[in-house]
């Protein structure tokens, strides 16, 4: 990838990232995020990591952005009127300026930034990726599946219907108390879940 192209993409990535946080309308933020992710995908391809670049575009721009869009429509999010606290913004600006100055000093006072990399051009094929995944990074690859499983279990634990015995016994009357199995209980759940929202339990503050 030529240096000129890289700088173009890098500046575009930074600008679109700013766009994600600076805009009020959530859909506009989302569009800026899509530009950002596409841009990074192109950068990967330009560096020879073709597989990673296309995965980035397919998964992030394709799947995840659509999911975001659905959530925004589902929740009917509107442009935010929130203006933020001036003091916090000032504090943040000072912090950011200090950090930028620090980075600038760091980079100006060192002779050069050396990386042993830069040979990725021949490495980005799906063959090399697969080879590394199933040899050098075999454990990491397998652990990733456990990580995702843990995340799914966590999401279910937080989002499944309220615990029947403790959550509802006080509020939801006797139909649950007489139910014998969890499956029977879950049948009567849809009714009692509504009851629960209208009758907050004592002591849940």
């Amino acid at each position: 990838m030529s240096l000129g192209l890289f700088f173009f993409l890098a500046v575009l990535a930074a600008l679109s990232a700013l766009g994600v946080i600076a805009q009020r309308n959530p859909v506009h933020c989302l569009l800026a995020l899509a530009v950002n992710l596409l841009d990074i995908g192109v950068m990967f391809v330009g560096l020879g990591a073709v597989t990673v670049g296309f995965l980035q575009i397919i998964i992030y721009v394709g799947a995840i952005m659509v999911l975001f869009l659905f959530v925004i429509w589902l929740l009917n999010l509107q442009a935010e009127g929130f203006s933020g606290y001036l003091g916090l913004k000032l504090f943040g600006a000072i912090g950011a300026a200090a950090l930028a100055a620090e980075f600038a000093t760091l980079f100006l006072h060192t002779s050069r930034i050396s990386t042993p990399g830069a040979s990725a051009l021949t490495q980005g094929t799906i063959t090399t990726l697969g080879r590394h995944l199933f040899s050098d990074y075999l454990v990491a690859f397998e652990i990733t599946s456990l990580l995702l499983l843990a995340a799914v279990v966590g999401a279910i634990g937080l989002a499944r219907r309220p615990p029947l015995s403790a959550g509802l016994s006080a509020a939801a009357g006797s139909d649950l108390a007489t139910a014998e199995s969890p499956r029977q209980m879950s049948r009567s759940m849809s009714v009692s879940a509504e009851q629960q929202t209208t009758t907050p339990r004592a002591g849940s503050a």
Binding site: V153, L158, P162, P163, G167
Partner: peptide, 21 residues
């Protein structure tokens, strides 16, 4: 990966008393 497996599980566990704000 170890840190994430641990953290994601504990993030969820911290919120398991769901009736409690």
């Amino acid at each position: 990966l170890g840190l994430e497996t641990m953290s994601i599980a504990v993030y969820a566990l911290a919120g398991f008393i769901r009736r409690d704000a």
